[in-house]
Write a protein that binds this DNA or RNA. Structure first.
Lengths: 147, 147
DNA sequence: TATTTATTTGCAAATTTGTTGCAATTTTAT
DNA sequence: ATAAAATTGCAACAAATTTGCAAATAAATA
C-alpha cells in the first residue's frame, strides 16, 4: 500500500544493522493500519503470527530506532508510528470513547517549548501535549456543553 | 510542617465521607516530601508501614478525590499532589538523570488549548505538556549544547 | 544457489505490577 | 466507653513485561 513507508522501515532497520523479518514487517503493518493502539490490541491483532515476547522485543527495538513512539494516554500508553512517518503532532483523547484525535496546529506550542527550554537551560529533545476531554459526539449525549 | 496542606487533605477526605487514617496521612506525607515519584518508589519508601494493596487503594482514592494526579512520563507514570496543592503546571524531564522540573509559565499554553478545543469541538477537561530533554548539568557532561 | 554465520524467534519460566476477598483492626459516631 | 462502619493487612490471584536458551530464519559468503 505505502511503498515509501516500507522502504523507510527497511532502510532504518538495515542502517541500524538489524534484519528485516516477517514479524517486524507484520508489526509495522499493524501500526500503519490502526495507528495509536495499546500493547494488548497490537498483540491480539497479531495472534498466531507472533509471540508476545517477540512483540515486546520488536517494539523496544522500533523505539530505539525511532520507528515507533509511545504515547502516554493518562497513565496508560499507546503505540504509534513516529513523527518520521506521520509528521509531528499532538493528541486529544476522549475520556468517554477513547478516540484519539491528532492535532497538527502546533506553531505556538513549538515557540512555547523553545522559550521554556531556553529559560530553564534545558536542551529539549521531544515534547508531547496531551489534552483529555469529551469529543463532539460523546459530549452531545452525557456532557452538554456549558461553556 | 505544612499545616494548610494537611488541613486540606483532611477536609477533602471528610467531605468525601472517608476517614483520616495514619496510612493515608503517610502516603500524603511522602507525596509532599518527594513529589513526582513512581509507584514502586512510593512503595519502597513506605515499606513496613503500609501494605502494597493498601497503597494502591489509597492512591486510587486520592485520585478519585482529586488529591493526587498521575503524571505520564514517557510510557511510565509518576504520582504527584494535584493542582489543588501545587497549582497547575507542566514538566520537563531529564532523559539522563530523570529529574523533573516543574514549569509554571503556561499562559500561552492555556490559550492554545482553548483554541484547539474549540476548533475540534471538544470540551477539554485537562491537559499536560511533557518536555523531555537534558537538564543543564547533564548536558554539560555528555551533551554539549550545540544550539 | 548452497552453505556458513549471525541474528531473531518461540517457548517456558520468572519477575514486576496491579487487583480482590475476607478476617482482623482502626476510625467514627453514639 | 461502646457499637457500627470503614479501612487495613494478608494471601492468593491476575495481568503486564522480561529473560534464557534451543530451534528457526535471515544475511553474508563462497
Amino acid at each position: 500500500m505505502n511503498y515509501d513507508s516500507y522502504e523507510l522501515l527497511e532502510n532504518t532497520l538495515r542502517l541500524g544493522g538489524y534484519s528485516v523479518t516477517k514479524q517486524r514487517r507484520l508489526v509495522f503493518e499493524l501500526l500503519l493500519k490502526h495507528e495509536p493502539q495499546a500493547m494488548h490490541e497490537l498483540y491480539e491483532r497479531s495472534i498466531g503470527r507472533l509471540d508476545r515476547a517477540s512483540l515486546y522485543r520488536i517494539i523496544a527495538l522500533f523505539e530505539r530506532l525511532g520507528i515507533v513512539q509511545k504515547l502516554s494516554m493518562g497513565w496508560k500508553y499507546k503505540l504509534e508510528l513516529s513523527d518520521m512517518f506521520t509528521g509531528h503532532h499532538h493528541h486529544i483523547t476522549c475520556l468517554k470513547c477513547g478516540r484519539v484525535i491528532p492535532i497538527k496546529e502546533d506553531l505556538s506550542i513549538e515557540r512555547f517549548i523553545t522559550s521554556i527550554a531556553q529559560k530553564h537551560r534545558v536542551s529539549a529533545v521531544k515534547h508531547q501535549l496531551e489534552i483529555q476531554g469529551y469529543c463532539n459526539s460523546c459530549r452531545e449525549h452525557d456532557h452538554p456543553l456549558t461553556v
